[in-house]
C-alpha cells in the first residue's frame, strides 16, 4: 500500500467493509454447522466460507489485490502449486483403492470389510 492520504482513506473504508464481511461470514459458518446437512455438504459449505474469508484477508488486509511485484506473485504462485501437490498426499496414500469397489481407509476398516465379505 502506498500513496496519498486520499488513497489511504479509501483503503480504510474498504477495511471496514471487509471487517464487517468477515464477522458476518463467521456467524454464518457457525450457524451452518448447526444445520443438519450431510457431512460432505457441511464440509463443502464450511470450506467455501473459510476460503472466502481467507481470500478477503489476503486480498485486502495483506493487499494482495493490488500487489504488482512479479517476484511476490511468482513466489506465491509456486507456493500454491506445491501446496496443492502437498494436499494430494492423502490421495497418493489411498491410491491403492482407486477403481476398486471397496473402501479400505485403514487396517481396522480393512478387517471389518473383510469380515463382512466372508
Amino acid at each position: 500500500m502506498s500513496g496519498s492520504a486520499e488513497e489511504v482513506r479509501k483503503h480504510i473504508a474498504t477495511y471496514k467493509k471487509v471487517a464487517g464481511a468477515l464477522g458476518v461470514f463467521t456467524i454464518v459458518t457457525v450457524l451452518a454447522s448447526y444445520l443438519n446437512v450431510p457431512i460432505p455438504l457441511g464440509i463443502t459449505i464450511a470450506l467455501v466460507i473459510a476460503l472466502t474469508k481467507g481470500s478477503l484477508v489476503a486480498s485486502f488486509f495483506m493487499h494482495l489485490s493490488e500487489e504488482r511485484s512479479k517476484a511476490i506473485i511468482w513466489t506465491l504462485g509456486l507456493t500454491v502449486v506445491f501446496w496443492f501437490v502437498l494436499m494430494l498426499l492423502p490421495l497418493f496414500t489411498m491410491s491403492d483403492h482407486i477403481g476398486v469397489h471397496k473402501t479400505l481407509p485403514n487396517a481396522n476398516a480393512a478387517t471389518e470389510h473383510a469380515e463382512e465379505a466372508h
Partner: peptide
C-alpha cells in the same frame, strides 16, 4: 515398495 499402489 510401500504398497502405495500401482497407479500412483
Amino acid at each position: 515398495l510401500t504398497g502405495m499402489g500401482t497407479t500412483i
